[in-house]
């Protein structure tokens, strides 16, 4: 049973680190475009207008269509577009991911006795 407790402690610690990264450290993330965006924006200037951001010039990113789910409540890693809620959105994301992934892996796992190796 000692090994089981040790496993649980490790898993909880790992989860805590993920929650702190997504819930707290995420506020310190660099808001600049990432490598892929940078490459697709090459040739354009991002200009802020009254209607939001506009791309001037000629670049690949101009072909990008708006996301089908752009109006979903958690779009853009914040709740209803409020950048102060990034941490909460991150915590929700960690929770959704661990439930989905953990559930899938639990279903896929080898069960003792069922399959001989």
């Amino acid at each position: 049973m000692k090994a089981k407790t040790r496993n649980l402690a490790f898993l909880l610690g790992f989860l805590a680190v993920a929650l702190v990264l997504a819930g707290v450290v995420s506020y310190f993330a660099d808001p600049n475009p990432d490598g892929l965006d940078h490459a697709t924006l090459e040739g354009c200037q991002v200009v802020r207008t009254a209607n939001g951001e506009e791309l001037r010039g000629s670049c690949i990113a101009q072909n990008a269509r708006e996301h089908n789910l752009a109006s979903s409540p958690l779009a853009g890693y914040s709740i209803s577009g409020d950048s102060g809620t990034t941490g909460l959105a991150g915590v929700i994301g960690v929770a959704v991911t661990v439930v989905l992934a953990g559930g899938l892996f639990w279903v896929l796992r080898k069960r003792p006795g069922k399959s001989a190796e």
């Binding site: 790992f14 993920a18 992934a101």
Partner: peptide, 13 residues
Amino acid sequence: APLAGLVAAFVFA
């Protein structure tokens, strides 16, 4: 299996 679920969550974070 539980560790793998947490690895996915860690990658998300």
